[in-house]
Each structure stands twice: as structure tokens, then as C-alpha cells.
């Protein structure tokens, strides 16, 4: 995996959007390939990294990468929230985008081999975790138990339905899906993810790492449960989102306390997050 990780720093590389899928309300997934074959070749990422994506004529925004570093189609999944993402949602297959990066530290991979992993995601919090999940499943034998707990408001709000279908059928991958309120055709769990974590999980705490992503309320309640289960604060990972303008650690819009999310993050352990000294 130690491929050449030379990021695109200043001038974006042009890429073509090859396919667009509707995920959930206001969220679409865009598959893309670089126009220059040598970049297509050299572009290597770590799970948990992000890119700066230019929508020509509208601007640039930071977006986390949901695809695996190995053998996975390059794509981003983006919620429409502002002017630039709205312009992205207008694009059609064949349109061009600009890409800089990849940036950021990424999730641990080599370091956690042999451990149990539990992924907990809420809503679109699954986007940044997907990359790590797929990569770990690609190396399934090298890890202990692998568990995913994923919740959303309703079944319509679950991301990556195709991946979910696959994952459900994957051996040795324990998955739990939950929605806030019962629905007629729903066969999964009902309730909040933290309740599910509390109910279902029993793991040897000292050999387990957790990856948690989701809205702040969910995040805090899940952390509480994980700590009750004895998982150490520096074994809980999450990724932070911030307003970013450069991705290079220069504009400083993403500064939190003494770190810059774009270069020191976006992945932090809960232990680090606690000491950042600012609201997250």
C-alpha cells in the first residue's frame, strides 16, 4: 500500500464524472476518472483522506473519500448544502470536475491488523467510514471480529444501499441496521444506534478499536456506550469536518485548537478530540 502518495497541491487535475447515482434525499454519488492516464495511475489514497473538489465556475470544497484505496471505483458522495455543492448536483455524466489531493492523515490500517473493529455510523456519517470498511473487508483474514452498526432516521435515509446488500451477505461481517421509527417493510432494528451498541455488543475491550461517524448528538451518545464497554479513548477514531479553503494547512480555516484538520486530521482519536479544547 505504500504507493506513491504525491498529492495534487495547487492546480487541480481534471477528471470526468462517469456516473451519477441518487443515494438518499439531497445526496448523490459521483463516480469519476482522471483525464490524464498518468494521474489515474499515480493517484493513491489512504482510507479516511479527503480531496478538494472544484466545480468549475462555482468553487471548491473539501469532501471525504468513500472508496477503498484498493480496487474500488473512485467516487464521492455529497449532500447539497450550499452554492458549490448545488452546482455539483447539477452536473451530468461527462461533465468535468477538478481534483486536488488526497489530503489528510487517514484512518489507521496496518496498525490495527489483528484487532476487532467496530464501525458505528449515523446518517451520512457512513460516507467517510465506507473507505475503511471496504478495505478491511478486502483484507478480512487479517482482522479479528468486524462489526458495523449503522442507523438512520428512516430506511430512506440509509446510504449505499448496494453496499449494504453486499455487506449483509458477507461472511464474517456482523452488520446491524437500525432506523428511528418502525416501518412496515423493515426487518432490521428500530431505535438509536447507541441503544443498539449498548444492547448487542460484547467484545474484549482491550483488543478492539472503534470508528465512529455521525451527527454530534449521536456521536456523543455512542462514545458514552463505547466507554462503558471499556474501549479506550485512544482506540476510538472519528473524522472531523471543517470549513476548508486550501487543504494544505495554510488558509487555517479548519484550525481547531492547536491542530489543523486538513493536515493533522481529519481522523482523530476521541482522546485527541477531547483535548482540542473547542466545540467540535
Amino acid at each position: 500500500m505504500e504507493g506513491s502518495l504525491v498529492p495534487i497541491v495547487t492546480v487541480p487535475e481534471v477528471a470526468t464524472v462517469v456516473e451519477i447515482r441518487d443515494e438518499i434525499d439531497e445526496v448523490k454519488t459521483f463516480y469519476f476518472n482522471f483525464d490524464r492516464p498518468e494521474i489515474e495511475q499515480a493517484f493513491k489514497i489512504r482510507s479516511g483522506q479527503f480531496i478538494m473538489c472544484t466545480i468549475f465556475g462555482a468553487g471548491e470544497f473539501a469532501v471525504s473519500l468513500p472508496f477503498s484505496p484498493e480496487n474500488d471505483r473512485k467516487h464521492i458522495s455529497v449532500r447539497r448544502v450550499g452554492k458549490v455543492t448545488a452546482a455539483l448536483h447539477e452536473l451530468q455524466p461527462g461533465d468535468k470536475i477538478g481534483v486536488r489531493g488526497p489530503f489528510g492523515n487517514g484512518f489507521p490500517f496496518e496498525e490495527i491488523k489483528g484487532k476487532n473493529i467496530i464501525y458505528v455510523a449515523g446518517g451520512i456519517g457512513l460516507i467517510p467510514l465506507r473507505s475503511s470498511i471496504v478495505q478491511v473487508l478486502q483484507h478480512r483474514a487479517e482482522f479479528g471480529r468486524v462489526i458495523l452498526v449503522y442507523g438512520a432516521r428512516s430506511s430512506r435515509d440509509l446510504m449505499y444501499k448496494e453496499s449494504i446488500r453486499e455487506w449483509k451477505a458477507t461472511e464474517n461481517f456482523e452488520t446491524y441496521f437500525t432506523i428511528d421509527r418502525p416501518e412496515p417493510d423493515w426487518s432490521g432494528e428500530v431505535g438509536f444506534v447507541n441503544q443498539l451498541v449498548a444492547k448487542k455488543l460484547s467484545l474484549p475491550a482491550d483488543n478492539t478499536v472503534a470508528f465512529v461517524c455521525g451527527p454530534p448528538v449521536m456521536f456523543n451518545s455512542v462514545i458514552k456506550e463505547l466507554k462503558l464497554k471499556g474501549i479506550k479513548e485512544d482506540h476510538i477514531y472519528s473524522t472531523l469536518e471543517r470549513h476548508m479553503k486550501c487543504g494544505l494547512g495554510k488558509c487555517q480555516h479548519c484550525a481547531i485548537g492547536r491542530t489543523l484538520v486538513c493536515v493533522d486530521g481529519p481522523v482523530y482519536t476521541y482522546k485527541q478530540i477531547k483535548t482540542l479544547g473547542e466545540q467540535i
Binding site: 448544502v81 471543517r242 470549513h243 480555516h253 481547531i256 466545540q279
Partner: peptide
């Protein structure tokens, strides 16, 4: 607006 993110959240209000 320096830290303001698209969507709702301003971590440093």
C-alpha cells in the same frame, strides 16, 4: 463566517 461551514454548524461562534 471564517469557520462557518455550509449547512448549519459554526464551531466557533
Amino acid at each position: 463566517g471564517y469557520t462557518k461551514m455550509a449547512g448549519d454548524h459554526n464551531p466557533r461562534k
